[in-house]
């Protein structure tokens, strides 16, 4: 495998770059002599860099899973209502139990994300089977409908400010030590998926083959649903939804190395980390010292890549 070293070096290079870029000047060479530089590095730069990489990796893996669950390439955790579900859960907890601790909020967000994703799975089961493209359309509309519910509740309860940070383009400028660690949970959930990689690959082969091979599809579906929901919920709460990562990265990796997930999941995770790191860096540099949210950059790049995927190879659903 020559891809892994290449991706790893790209990741390291981008992480180093990410550590040096920012409004405050930090020279990596004299962090040990300069207390202030060390502080900026440990409290702000490093957490941000790690957060970006974890987000990219976890969202990409979640994208692979949702695509295997749905057996459709043109969906991602941000286009099937999962993110809106997480926001709905967070809103619910914030309104009903404002004093609840963080872990309660996380569980509520994950559960609500699970419910809305499950709703999406229920909707697409009723769609005509041959119409591959209806699945992503249904997902986008469902997220729109759920999003309007979230907006409505947000307005009614004066929580629009929160809703904005969850669902509008995610960004990492607010990340400091102590405010991103939940992303490790997301990464852990995504890592869990790797152990079941074969099962997800078989699930992607279709109901018939999966049954023939004696796979209990229902339990694999549940696992996939749980991982996708937990990853999305953590990302939504910590940094806000980053669009298109979970959709585009799995497609690009699949084009190159196929869908043998045991081999490809690590590559997917690395590529996702590299992509989001690169976008975050661009966002930090383009109007330096101000920032453009990474989610905005990905909105442009991701949409363009999606259009390319949609039209490049016809009918490879």
């Amino acid at each position: 495998m020559r891809r892994m070293p290449a991706l790893l070096s790209a990741l390291i290079a981008l992480m180093l770059a990410s550590l040096t870029v920012g409004a405050a000047h930090v020279d990596l060479r004299d962090i040990f002599s300069d207390d202030r530089a060390m502080l900026v590095l440990l409290e702000s730069r490093l957490p941000r860099t790690v957060a970006v990489a974890l987000t990219g990796a976890a969202l990409s893996v979640a994208g692979v899973l949702i695509q295997a669950l749905v057996r459709n390439r043109f969906v991602g955790p941000d286009t099937v209502g999962t993110a809106e579900g997480a926001a709905l859960g967070l809103l619910g907890v914030t309104i009903l139990f404002p004093a609840s601790p963080l872990w309660v909020r996380m569980i509520a967000a994950s559960l609500a994300a699970m419910v809305t994703t499950w709703l999406f799975l229920g909707v697409i089961r009723r769609l005509p089977a041959r119409e591959v493209m209806l699945i992503p359309i249904a997902g986008l509309v469902l997220s729109g409908v759920l999003g309007s519910v979230v907006t409505f509740i947000g307005w009614q309860t004066d929580l629009m400010q929160y809703v904005g940070t969850w669902l509008l383009s995610g960004e990492f400028s607010g990340v400091i030590a102590g405010r991103y660690e939940l992303l490790w949970v997301a990464a852990g959930a995504a890592g869990l998926a790797w152990f079941a990689a074969d099962r997800f690959a078989i699930l992607g082969l279709g109901e018939q083959v999966a049954t023939g091979l004696g796979l209990s599809t229902a339990s694999v579906m549940r696992l996939g649903l749980a991982v996708v929901s937990v990853v999305t919920a953590m990302v939504v709460t910590t940094v806000g939804m980053i669009p298109f990562v979970g959709l585009v990265v799995p497609n690009l990796v699949s084009r190159v190395m196929g869908d043998n997930l045991r081999a490809s999941l690590p590559v997917v995770a690395l590529s996702g980390a590299v992509l989001v790191l690169a976008c975050d860096l661009v966002g930090r540099l383009v109007i330096y010292p101000y920032e453009v949210p990474a989610g905005m950059i990905l909105g442009i790049l991701g949409a363009a890549l999606f259009l390319w995927l949609l039209h490049r190879r016809p009918a490879h659903g």
């Binding site: 295997a68 057996r71 459709n72 390439r73 074969d198 690959a201 078989i202 992607g204 082969l205 279709g206 018939q208 083959v209 049954t211 023939g212 091979l213 004696g214 796979l215 209990s216 699949s254 084009r255 196929g258 869908d259 043998n260 659903g317």
Partner: peptide
């Protein structure tokens, strides 16, 4: 169902697969 899979193998008619797999990877499953 996992036990049945070691007693019988069944191949249905619908063999279109959305996943991008190499032939050897498919057979290995």
């Amino acid at each position: 169902t996992a036990d049945l899979a070691r007693v019988m193998a069944i191949l249905g008619q619908q063999t279109a697969v959305a996943s991008r797999l190499r032939l050897c990877e498919l057979v290995a499953f």
